[in-house]
Design a protein around this nucleic acid. Structure first.
Lengths: 339, 339
DNA sequence: TTGAAAGCGTTACCAG
DNA sequence: CTGGTAACGCTTTCAA
């Protein structure tokens, strides 16, 4: 049962000074080759590991970043975390992962805990509730680098996001081309920028496509499976239900799908569906769901890169957009001629 | 732009000693109420945050645990991480999450990095390749507490797992009761204990159910979507294909489902499928997939609890089994009378 | 080439 | 009740 061994102990055992041990182990000049070998061998033998806290204390650096996601169990975010972690590892960083459960209060708490831990930087996806940015102000005050990804906000800071307006526009246009006349938009909270942008793209497409904008076809609410389910059921139970649905988020897409099925309606003949989901999730539906394909790996890589640059002193504010594109599957493959 | 402020600086500003500041901020006795208030107010005003590295250095404790999963992007593991993180937070711990990508070499590296970080404990799900446990030996040597979850091994250490043998037995029995005569087992590597156990349950059930054991219906290989796909296709392309499939892992379940669909076969009429997946994943399939329901939250909670006990000095080795039970959906709802 | 000592921020012990 | 100081493990500067 080994104890943590320190440089001092090695020095003591060898009858040399700690500073010599330090130099030898760090490969710094100023130690004779013979002595160095003796020291290195001893360190090896004793299972020496540098104490990261002593090093951190000295250098004020931790080689650690913080990640905050709304729900680590949801595949979209988990996937991004995977790539963030992969990039972090390549660059010698460890990731402290925290989950806000999509709640603002938790998000604030996560920031607080990560600040207390003195992570070198933070990358986060905002909760759906977040409209107050004082926690981000705090990060700025303390000069802690951070980058927002996926869900960004109207806040002066670096971001990595998806072309929300345009991809929603494309999705809606596609539905129009499929012959849909009554396209519903199933979204998150009205205050969430991601939803605002995607809704904007949707509305623009309706306008350009010459379809009337019907307020009753726009259903925004919580990003949750249950909210998505009941909102979709509401849509379907009106006298003039939608013939197509654009869902703003993976959870809502799944909920919409199930709601439609549960009403005994056919996809895509009765209702076409397109959502913001991953490809492997799309494949699980029957029929497979058309979706807005986001380059998740790229989001992860770009986000980490940007954060690393900031950690290394880049003070500029950048906005990177990782383009998403449509991927058409059976859930929208229909040519309708209604009304 | 605030700098990190130290107790020393506060002491300096107030013309008192650091030790007094320390006592005041820690709420320890031995400071007059008035002075304490002055110090606390000043600390507040200056935005003082204790430096965790100084504290760690002092106490040799980090309030950090390490988590190693085979694939953080896969919902089953991501879900467990969610609950682990939730428990950790409640207890004042942060989680360093690492992803082994189901590779042994990465797993060893993750252990190494977490040890270097001096996490207080590690909880991990082994990679499918892991048959050498020298990295666990190392953890024991250094007296670093750890707990294995989900995938455990024949190694003397604390574990939290699912009743693999029994749940596979139940699943197989269920298929037999549905009238299946040729039940295939789609599993992970033959050396993976999880697969061994589940296969064992499957074979036992066949025996008890009076069905012959057919070697050609047991397909074990990589745990990956592609391996699952090709193995299932192999099964389906034989002259006497299976009429039911038990899949050993979520990825394999999904792969099996798609393989069957892609061959134009009906579920469950031609091939019934049951897998080890989560409920929300089950719901996405059409027809919904019968599954072995694992209590993921309980796995997370029990694992963290056990690790925390170890950190607090409990040296005993415990094996907790979180029971899983069948959840029957449409993918096996059929009564066949074949042959 | 090697040693001695100071310092990073915090806490604990001992004096006053 | 308050101050001084040593200690945690490591690095760096200065001196020998």
């Amino acid at each position: 049962m080994k104890q943590n061994i320190s440089q001092r102990e090695i020095a003591h055992l060898l009858g040399v000074n700690v500073s010599t041990v330090s130099r030898a182990l760090k490969g710094q000049p100023g130690v004779s080759p013979e002595l160095r070998k003796v020291i290195v061998d001893m360190a090896e033998k004793m299972g020496y590991r540098p104490n990261p806290f002593a090093v951190s204390l000295r250098y004020n650096t931790t080689h650690t970043i913080g990640i905050i996601v709304p729900d680590i169990a949801f595949n979209h975010y988990a996937h991004i975390v995977k790539w963030l972690e992969a990039e972090a590892r390549k660059n010698g960083y460890l990731c402290i992962v925290t989950d806000s459960c999509d709640k603002y209060s938790n998000e604030v708490d996560c920031v607080e805990r990560l600040m207390n831990m003195h992570v070198e930087g933070i990358t986060m996806c905002l909760s759906q509730e977040t409209t107050d940015f004082s926690h981000l102000d705090k990060l700025n005050q303390y000069n802690i680098p951070f980058v927002l990804f996926d869900r960004v906000a109207d806040y002066e800071c670096s971001t990595v996001s998806v072309n929300d307006v345009d991809s929603a526009w494309q999705a809606t246009m596609h539905l129009i081309e499929c012959g849909a006349k009554r396209i519903a938009f199933l979204g998150g909270p009205n205050k969430l920028k991601q939803t605002i942008d995607r809704k904007h793209g949707y509305l623009e497409a309706l306008r350009e496509g010459g379809l009337p904008i019907r307020k009753e076809l726009v259903k925004c609410g919580q990003v949750s499976f249950n909210a998505g389910l009941s909102n979709t059921l509401d849509l379907l139970c009106t006298p003039t239900p939608p013939d197509a649905i654009l869902a703003d988020h993976g959870l809502l897409s799944q909920a919409a799908f199930q709601a439609v099925i549960s009403k005994g309606l056919r996809i895509p003949e009765d209702v076409a569906i397109i959502g913001f989901i991953s490809d492997w999730v799309s494949d699980m539906f029957y029929p497979r769901m058309s979706f807005v394909k986001q380059n998740i790996r790229e989001i992860g890589r770009k986000t980490f890169k940007m954060l690393l640059d900031k950690i290394n002193g880049d003070a500029s504010i950048k906005h990177v957009v990782v383009n998403a594109r449509l991927n058409i599957k059976e859930s929208t493959m229909v040519y309708k001629n209604k009304q």
